[in-house]
């Protein structure tokens, strides 16, 4: 077994996602790798793509890539442009702002951005 990104002190911290007035617990923070994402299934059947940036800040947007319809954004690469974090779709590489869900390469396209917190 090799080193992982988690530190023991953070293993109990949970990532929560806001759905209306409620916060849904998704997973322990330790399940995420900075710069990558995971997919989470929401109660209504939609999917969220949850990410950490290199500072350890969490983000979540809808997992569906609007250009292909495939639920794959969680498998994209995280980057930053002008100080703002984005994910590049693994299919055709369009970039989406992780805070707003706006597509950086096509102004008319955006995905839902979710509010997340660590508890």
């Amino acid at each position: 077994m090799t080193a992982t990104t988690l530190a023991p002190a953070t293993t109990d911290v949970q990532i929560q996602l806001r759905l209306g007035d409620d916060w849904a617990a998704l997973c322990p923070l330790s399940r995420l790798t900075p710069g990558r994402g995971v997919a989470a299934l929401l109660p209504d059947g939609r999917q969220a793509a949850v990410f950490l940036d290199r500072e350890g800040r969490p983000y979540a947007i809808d997992n569906c890539d609007p250009f292909s319809g495939a639920r794959v954004l969680a498998r994209g690469l995280v980057g930053s442009a002008a100080g703002r974090p984005f994910v590049a779709s693994p299919l055709l590489k369009q970039r989406f702002d992780l805070e707003t869900g706006r597509c950086l390469d096509d102004d008319s396209v955006s995905v839902t951005a979710y509010e997340v917190r660590l508890r």
Partner: peptide
């Protein structure tokens, strides 16, 4: 089926 322009627009309310 894909309809990019209107995609997820109706779900905006769920966003932060």
């Amino acid at each position: 089926l894909l309809s990019i322009r209107s995609f997820d627009q109706t779900l905006e309310g769920a966003a932060r």
